[in-house]
Write a protein that binds this DNA or RNA. Structure first.
Lengths: 119, 119
DNA sequence: ATTAATACCTAAATTTCTTAGGTAAAAAAT
DNA sequence: ATTTTTTACCTAAGAAATTTAGGTATTAAT
């Protein structure tokens, strides 16, 4: 069993952003399964984000319970693989979340660089 | 007693960023007191961030306990006002946090706009 | 007088994440 | 051949941060 030894410092900031990342990733790539998501997030962030499964699966299940994702199981030989896909509500939620994130970054810019980031 | 009725949507994203904001604000403005911080954050973010006191004071006390802030009390008439100020360790922590936040935003850019945000 | 604003704070509950596991199949390494 | 690593799913206890919902008291405004 693989355990990650070095956690990225920036993981602390990932709080509150995980769902945005998941919804966006599924919007880009269509259906994906959990293990794939962990790897894609690491690749696509150049190793900056290191999702843990303990964070990922509860988040996916929450999104599913909220009607933003649906799942389909597939057998690869004897091994089950569970694909997640956006629902229409999930697509809307994705757009909202991404917009919110951009607003968040802009607001942070105002706070961190009040001189240069004037509105 | 004033209660905020409308919470900004982006407040959810504030999670994990509060200390960065506080350290940065104190670095900019020198000493500040709690009530002042709540207002400054709202002003300087154009109303995007609405700090609650329930989040603010525990965060300030934590930073103080960690040696990043020191306090001085002042009486305005009969009313106590508690000023917070960065220690040298707090200044260092501020620089680190801001750098981390920028790295976080860059990583998010890679995740949200994989085509246009190439390294 | 009463309400609103200034000014501090705490505590219970919730949410979110980390840490630390468990199960099992397939592939790679020894 | 067997041990290890990778693939693939998951849960649960604990920690950390925040929300919600208060409490106290002074000063300013209506």
């Amino acid at each position: 069993m693989l355990r990650y030894i070095c956690r990225m410092i920036t993981n602390e900031l990932l709080k509150g952003t995980l769902k945005t990342i998941l919804l966006n990733l599924l919007a880009e790539h269509g259906r994906m399964y959990g293990y794939e998501i962990v790897q894609k997030v690491r690749e696509q962030s150049n190793g900056a984000f290191q999702l843990t499964e303990g964070a990922l699966y509860p988040a996916l299940h929450k999104l599913e319970a909220d009607g933003l994702l649906v799942t389909e199981k597939e057998m690869i030989g004897k091994r089950a693989r569970k694909y997640y896909r956006l629902t229409p509500a999930g697509s809307e939620a994705k757009a909202t979340k991404v917009t919110e994130f951009k607003a968040f970054v802009q607001a942070m810019q105002l706070l961190l660089n009040p001189k240069t980031a004037a509105g």
